[in-house]
């Protein structure tokens, strides 16, 4: 027989009348018990008021997102025995960022609104719709599209993203993955408009890989954002952010192309302009750091290798 053991489940509960409070439950579990089953047991056997979302219990529907021991996870994809600590305890809380509605149920409207902003649907060519032309797709193109389409709208990445919290103009990781999925789809006819929707927002991502880390589907939204940024040179439009990003990035590319390294003082000047750079210099002087800003590193000696690598533009 499979060995059972008693675990303690601490849930941060919430309702409008009582506000937030913690409640503990004891549950029998074995090595096969998913956290969604733990919740179902509590609800049907101990506390019917316990509220949470759950549907497929196989990590394809994205309902049961929550914080398990502080970590953003799907409850169904978390086995009770791996979740518990040495005291056989596990803590469950509603996801960060979203407004709480009830116990482990947050209001996810803000997540959905971000998704809708990227017009998440294919606009096929009329001749394909009518059947005059058949649209083909290479296996590698399908792979790329599917990678980012595998998102299950669970909202974990947005709840964990530091930029989303600070910057309402940032569409967030999931919406970027979704947007890029259509950019990468040769069957779509709105690629330019899509780049227009995504480009400014892409430069609001910090590339911190938090979304990559918490995604239960391995969608890697940050990679979609990076791939979107790569279109910055062919995108005709601009915004304040994009202008700065272009200056900054082209200076880096230039610097690497010339010396094989980044020369920060030059980068500073070119990106932020003379006035802002001087202001920052003042701060650095006060910190006693200015001597480093002036330091000069040697260039790469074998620049031929670097030039060959940098050489042919994409």
């Amino acid at each position: 027989m499979v060995e059972e053991k008693e675990i303690t489940v601490n849930v941060k509960k919430y309702d409008k009348e009582k506000g937030e409070y913690w409640k503990s439950y004891k549950v029998q579990a074995d090595r096969y018990t998913q956290m969604t089953e733990v919740l179902r047991k509590i609800k049907t056997e101990q506390d019917p008021t316990l509220s949470y979302r759950a549907s497929c219990h196989m990590a394809v529907c994205g309902s049961c997102s929550m914080k398990i021991n502080g970590e953003p996870r799907l409850a169904c994809k978390t086995m009770a025995f791996t979740a518990i600590n040495e005291k056989n305890e596990v803590n469950l809380e509603s996801m960060d960022y979203y407004q709480e509605v009830r116990d482990l149920i947050p209001d996810m409207d803000t997540f959905y609104d971000r998704m809708y902003k990227v017009e998440p649907r294919l606009y096929a060519d009329q001749t394909v719709i009518s059947g005059e032309n058949d649209e083909r797709m290479t296996p590698s193109e399908q792979k790329e599209v599917w990678k980012f389409e595998e998102c299950i709208w669970c909202g974990l990445c947005v709840s964990a993203c530091p930029s989303v919290k600070e910057d309402e103009k940032f569409l967030g990781p999931a919406a970027h993955a979704k947007g890029y999925r259509f950019m990468a789809d040769g069957r779509d006819t709105k690629k330019e408009e899509r780049i227009g929707i995504l480009m400014d927002s892409a430069w609001r991502c910090t590339s911190c890989y938090m979304c990559y880390e918490v995604c239960p589907q391995d969608v890697q939204p940050v990679i979609a954002i990076k791939k979107t940024k790569a279109y910055v040179d062919e995108f005709p439009g601009t915004t304040e952010l994009i202008t700065m990003a272009r200056k900054h990035d082209s200076t880096i590319a230039e610097s690497i192309g010339e010396s094989g390294k980044i020369k920060e003082s030059k980068l500073y000047l070119k990106t932020f302009g003379y006035v802002a750079a001087m202001k920052d210099m003042m701060y650095m002087m006060k910190e006693g750091k200015i001597k480093y800003a002036m330091a000069k590193d040697t260039d790469v000696k074998n620049m031929d290798e670097i030039k060959k690598i940098m050489g042919d533009k994409k």
Binding site: P162, S163, E166, D167, W203, R204, C205, T206, S207, C208, M210, L241, I242, M244, A245, H248, D249, T271, F272
Partner: peptide, 22 residues
């Protein structure tokens, strides 16, 4: 383990600094 905001300094410095402050 949250981001310090440095990567934003080349495109969106106000939010980058805000993260550092956080």
């Amino acid at each position: 383990a949250s981001c310090c905001g440095f990567p934003l300094m080349g495109s969106n410095p106000p939010v980058g600094l805000k993260m550092a402050n956080n």
